[in-house]
Amino acid sequence: MRNLILLLLRYGGFVVFLLLEAFCMFLVVRYNRTQQEIYVNSTNILSGALYERAANIRQFWNLREKADSIANVNAQLREEIELMKRAAALKAEKDSTYILPDSSRQYRYISARIIDNATNGNNNTLTLAKGSKDGIRPRQGVIDDRGLIGIVRDVSENYATVVSLLHRQIRINAANQRNNSIGVIAWRGNDPTIVKMEDVPKHINLIQGDTIVTSGYSPNRFPSGVMIGTIDTFWLQPGSNYYDIEVKLSNDLNTARYVYVIENSLIEEQEELEKEVADE
């Protein structure tokens, strides 16, 4: 305290000088237009660089939010494409003006972020950061931009678990895009980039590189034509009536970050009808 007083006695004049000048400068900038403009412009130049940096950092933190919103837009666009396709198909059939009813919007896409993923086990699952609140139900199909991901298993309010395509119990109806021959996709373990296609009878003509897509048949979790992969190798076991086909996935489940969950609004109707047939 004594030192402080000594300091003030010694430099008190300078402190008062600084205070008075600071007050004068405040008056100058506050009440003189020319000086005010110069002051504002100079501080803008100085702070401009600072603001830009801060904005860059903020943008970085906002990236996830932005990606979320872009994913949502993508989901909407997918629906629109689906709708257009159906409209085009109907128009081709009827060759007349056709107004599409709302009920024709069979597939809806819900974008979701993957928050947990594994590809190294025998029975892999994923977790999505969306749940029943967002319209996700068990047994819905999950895809991303590059191809198939899996099928929803359990749903809580905010989360959903997905049985990955790389799961030993998964079965997905698939078709060869070139000749519409159908089969079933399953995974046998080991290589996360290769799946098997089964139940393709030996009279079907196959070519290496044939594109395999979803067939859209029951259980109808996927619309037809979703890319799965291309035929890598195929062979016939002696005495077997069915091909052994290895399909190279178009998708890489290891690097997937955003997915679309497919909601089929007509699935209940279809399943009910098919159950009646089965019951007979």
Binding site: F17, L20, E21, C24, M25, L27, V28, R30, Y31, N32
Partner: peptide, 12 residues
């Protein structure tokens, strides 16, 4: 009408 300009020079 130049608030602060003369005052700052005078204090200086």
């Amino acid at each position: 009408g130049s608030y602060g300009v003369h005052a700052s020079a005078a204090v200086f």
